[in-house]
Design a protein around this nucleic acid. Structure first.
Length: 128
DNA sequence: GCATTGACGAAGG
DNA sequence: CCCTTCGCCAATG
């Protein structure tokens, strides 16, 4: 699959099951540059699973224990809202991490979201 | 096994 | 512009 080609990073070997989809998601998220953000749907679409944005969210859920680390805070919903903040160690952690990268967060939303949006499909120029 | 639940998103009212 | 419905599909009860 495309994402595996993007980066043959050390994929987490979940002992028995290896969910390539999850790993593909993690690989893409790891490629998001500092100070940029993307959305769940964009990642899903990039993987050819356009309608499965929720699965990306589910993958993020498990991403905390994954190594190498996954910058899950750079993934927000399509409106730039920090819908996943409650899944971090503290509700303010996600916002703090983003601010640390120079991203302004106003009212749980990424300011200038449109400009900071990093579309994996076009930025990486994946060929399916 | 069926029902419910989501860090989603598009469409319709 | 807000709300609901629906498709999506792994995980959970």
């Amino acid at each position: 699959m495309p994402a595996k080609k993007i980066q043959n990073s050390n994929i987490i070997k979940n002992d028995l099951k290896e969910y390539s989809f999850f790993n593909d998601v993690y690989d893409i998220v790891r490629l998001i540059p500092r100070g940029r953000v993307t959305s769940y749907g964009a990642i899903a679409e990039c993987l050819g699973a356009k309608g499965s944005a929720r699965m990306v969210g589910w993958a993020m859920n498990a991403s905390h224990q994954v190594r190498p680390k996954v910058p899950a805070h750079r993934v927000v919903n399509r409106n730039g809202m920090l819908t996943g903040k409650h899944h971090f160690t503290t509700p303010s952690e996600m916002e703090n991490l983003l601010k640390k990268e120079g991203i302004k967060v106003i009212d749980d939303k990424v300011a200038e979201f449109k400009n900071l949006f990093w579309n994996p499909k076009t930025e990486l120029e994946i060929n399916m």
